[in-house]
Design a protein around this nucleic acid. Structure first.
Length: 473
DNA sequence: TTTTGAGTTGTTCGA
DNA sequence: GTCGAACAACTCAAA
């Protein structure tokens, strides 16, 4: 088991069950080849493993968790158990592929490693432009992907009907004892109030979205004060639901006259972006750490430690930015619309390198993904594939007025200014003195003044980008 | 083979 | 208040 912590619709589990008795194994790595999960993802992963262990236990088996490298753990187990084979879901990132090679090299005797589909909708190596290279623009990629996914039979991987378990093995790690970073601060208890990891919870979330959310998805997805999105991202990140099953569940609705096709299409397109990010990292393995557009290697990022800290803690003085950063801290998740606003603020208003924002998201997001996280940060910063143009600089106040007009979202996450009304809530620094006093607010004390002036910061960002362009010519 | 048009998410300015 | 233009440069597909 890797980033695929489920039993249903799992091609590798099915393949293993067809061969004989199944011993489910998860390897805890101290120094993984793949990027080690951040603190929030570690918390999710541990609970998801516990959930998987319960599910397997209820069926009469036991999940074995062992510490080590994949190759040492699996080679030793293969020898001890005389395994007929090892089945896993194929990985498309470089570290994961290296793990597979290392396991193959380490196996002695007749045991072979068999990799199965599951992590992506299509094999990224097989989607190419007419010229034979990888796509760098989303829309042509999306059209090609649509054609391919539509052409497949559309049935989810067959479910293992009956699994016989292999139960004779030695000692494994106690899942409840696996340490999670920062747990002692009580931070993870806050995450637990908002989320339930595990396959059961993932199925409920997909079912709820299928019956409720999808009908108005395109209309509501941009309103952070509503539950307008599927909130499936962490479940997909850990494979508690298969990507193909998620796709088919919603794609199957298009024939249902009760749901407008554009609502389904809008969500499938988001799965298309997940696929595009993985596809890009597959073809451009440097993307997670290096500018996709290399001319940005000369860009003058600011080394603004205080600005970065204010951003991380939700103390920028811009209510929508602060609401988003606090939602992230308290729940391990942030609404998509707000992710764009806070990322634009860090990379354009503060001109802090996108890697600093990417690192913070990596550590605090329960859905932090090796491909989506860096690819989307690069998209926002303007350094990425098919990226936002340099002049697209979100105005945090305008975005708040447009997408949180009633202020539900800001009031929830920035309670110290909840008493303000109308435009004062979106721009407290413009509020009348009397209104601030009535609401008990002292700007600079109970809530920060804006750490940068929007129009000055915007002008400075445009100038920095203009300078880069003149140097590039 | 060459040309043309289109392309996730925005903001500001001036008419 | 509304509306269109400007803010680049490049990739890819279709004509």
């Amino acid at each position: 088991m890797r980033d695929d912590l489920r039993l249903r619709g799992h091609a590798a589990v099915t393949a293993a069950a067809q061969r004989g008795k199944v011993l489910p194994v998860f390897v805890l790595e101290d120094a993984p080849r793949r990027r080690a999960p951040g603190a929030a993802a570690c918390w999710w992963q541990r609970l998801s493993l516990a959930s998987l262990a319960r599910d397997i236990g209820a069926l009469g088996g036991r999940l074995l968790v062992r510490r080590g490298t994949p190759e040492t753990v699996l080679a030793e187990l293969a020898a001890d158990t005389h395994a007929a084979g090892i089945c896993c879901q194929r990985s498309y990132d470089a570290g994961g592929r290296d793990d597979e090679s290392a396991v193959r090299r380490a196996l002695r005797g007749p045991t072979r490693l068999e990799t199965c589909d599951g992590d992506m909708l299509v094999d990224p190596a097989s989607v190419l432009t007419a010229a034979g290279g990888p796509y760098r623009v989303f829309t042509p990629f999306w059209r090609a992907l649509r054609k391919r996914v539509g052409a497949a039979d559309g049935s989810p991987a067959t479910q293992a009907q009956r699994i016989e378990w292999f139960t004779h093995f030695g000692h494994g790690e106690e899942i409840d004892r696996i340490s999670v970073p920062d747990e002692r601060f009580g931070w993870t208890q806050s995450l637990a109030r908002h989320w339930t990891p595990g396959e059961d919870a993932a199925r409920h979330a997909l079912a709820a979205f299928h019956s409720d959310g999808i009908a108005t998805y395109e209309d509501d997805r941009n309103t952070p004060g509503m539950q307008g999105t599927s909130r499936l991202s962490p479940h997909l990140r850990f494979g508690e639901i298969g990507i193909r099953e998620a796709w088919d569940t919603i794609a199957g609705l298009r024939t249902d006259s009760a749901i407008a096709p554009n609502q389904c299409e809008a969500w499938l397109r988001e799965l298309g972006w997940r696929e595009f990010c993985r596809y890009l990292v597959f073809h451009f393995p440097d993307l997670p750490t290096a500018n996709f557009r290399s001319e940005f290697d000369r860009f003058q990022w600011q080394d603004d430690a205080d600005g970065l800290t204010a951003w991380q803690h939700g103390n920028t003085g811009y209510p929508l930015v602060d609401a988003g950063m606090r939602e992230l801290w308290h729940t391990g998740w942030m609404h998509n619309r707000v992710r764009m606003v806070v990322a634009s603020f860090l990379t354009k208003h503060l001109r802090v390198h996108w890697r600093a924002g990417e690192a913070w998201f990596w550590d605090t997001l329960i859905d932090a993904d090796y491909a989506s996280n860096p690819a989307n940060w690069q998209w926002t910063a303007g350094t990425g594939a098919d990226a936002a143009p340099y002049f697209r600089i979100f105005n945090p106040s305008t975005q708040a007025q447009k997408f949180d007009a009633q202020g539900h979202y800001i009031r929830r996450w920035v309670p110290e200014i909840a008493e303000l009304s109308g435009s004062a809530l979106h721009q407290p620094w413009l509020a009348r003195e009397s209104e601030l006093r009535a609401a008990g607010i002292v700007l600079g004390e109970t809530y920060p003044l804006p750490i940068v002036d929007h129009s000055n910061a915007r002008a400075a960002a445009l100038a920095a980008h203009a300078e880069l362009r003149s140097k590039s010519r």
